[in-house]
Design a protein around this nucleic acid. Structure first.
Lengths: 211, 211
DNA sequence: CTCGTAGGCCAACAGGTGTTGACGTCGATG
DNA sequence: CATCGACGTCAACACCTGTTGGCCTACGAG
């Protein structure tokens, strides 16, 4: 799912002959894995803070202390790098284990901690606002990860997409104002306040009868 | 307010000697106003659909059927062009004339029609997500236009910024999912449905006691 | 009619971009 | 020890960007 259309080189080394992989039995650790990781970390930071266009391969390579051409050899292209850098897994909780009237609070809290602790989400949001491919990636995340969870909490199956989209609008809207646009009052809010304000909204979008 | 720091050339012609302005007494119409308008229209479209970086001056000039250098002469720089293209006035209604329990509906409806009919808002949102200057412009719009209106509807003066920011998160979140990311269910929603779902949220953010 | 000037186009500059290929180097393998 | 391939660097390509200055044209004032 991550690198569907663009997979020009994969990773150098092939892993075909079985001659490589020093050290042991089954782990696919290569000598270059540290470099790969450094590139991915630098890429995530740049994409999150600069967006797609302004996050240049040269800058990412400099952050990772390697040559720009290495980025190309490992990830094929800038788009391939982005796809590898933000393989986003929301790790959404299982809502069937949550009391029906607590799903709003659970979702808001989960998203908030997700957003606070890593910048992948900011990266994919910023790129989604800039780039067509980024927007499609966001649509995929919505479809594959948020929709199934909404299905667990939503009474009428026919209304699941609408209700999930409403939740997305509120959750992404908070992320936009707080982490991207940085409206001062949105930045100043404490996480508990955010949960207290937004949980009823998400709860209503998911479970209340349609207006 | 619109072009504070960047005003290198203004408009060619000066309007100082009074020799120009063919046709009549007071109207400041210049021969080049049509071209200026064409440039601004093309710029708005490009900024809205491509974001700041990918909206190139060359593409805008081609859309307006003129030379790229004309854009520079009229607006000084790309940033000057952007500032002139999105001189955003939300034209928010006077909430003191609206019944206290209708402010949510009024605000959501106003924003929705605003967004549907012109693309300036999409442009400023997209650029705000890409560009630092764009984000600051968005902060200014929030501070100068949304905050005063929230002041009219909000009981506790101390909570005005927080409540306005919450409203912004929901309103901008809808715009993001519907006009930028284009999540299919958010696109498919009818305006009346949107108002019906979002009005209670905004109403609560503005007037309900804090949770 | 003459002429200044606003309006417009053309060609070019300097810098930055993604991307490519040739060239070293070091460790592990035969 | 000799060899091969993964790892990495350097230099360059072709392209596109914002921006600049010079030149031409045509309208309206005198």
């Amino acid at each position: 799912m991550t690198a569907s259309s663009t997979d020009p080189t994969g990773t150098p080394g092939g892993t075909g002959t079985g001659t490589g992989t020093p050290g042991g039995a089954s782990s696919g650790a290569r000598r270059s894995d540290a470099t790969r990781g450094a590139i991915l970390t630098a890429a995530r930071e740049r994409f999150a803070s600069d967006g797609y266009e302004r996050a240049t391969i040269r800058a990412i390579a400099k952050d990772a202390h390697i040559d720009p051409s290495m980025v190309m050899r490992y990830f094929g292209s800038k788009e391939g790098l982005f796809a590898a850098a933000v393989a986003l897994d929301l790790r959404l909780p299982d809502l069937t284990a949550v009391p029906r009237d607590e799903v709003g609070r659970a979702l808001v809290g989960h998203f908030l901690s997700l957003w606070e602790e890593n910048e992948e989400l900011t990266a994919v949001l910023r790129v989604g606002a800039t780039n067509q491919a980024g927007a499609e990636r966001m649509q995929g995340i919505f479809r594959d990860q948020l929709l199934p969870v909404a299905r667990q909490a939503c009474p009428d199956p026919e209304q699941i997409p609408v209700r999930a989209a409403l939740c997305a609008s509120q959750l992404l809207g908070l992320a936009l104002t707080r982490y991207v646009l940085r409206l001062p009052p949105a930045v100043a809010l404490h996480p508990q306040e955010i949960v207290a304000w937004l949980a009823p909204t998400v709860q209503r979008y998911l479970t209340a009868p349609s207006p």
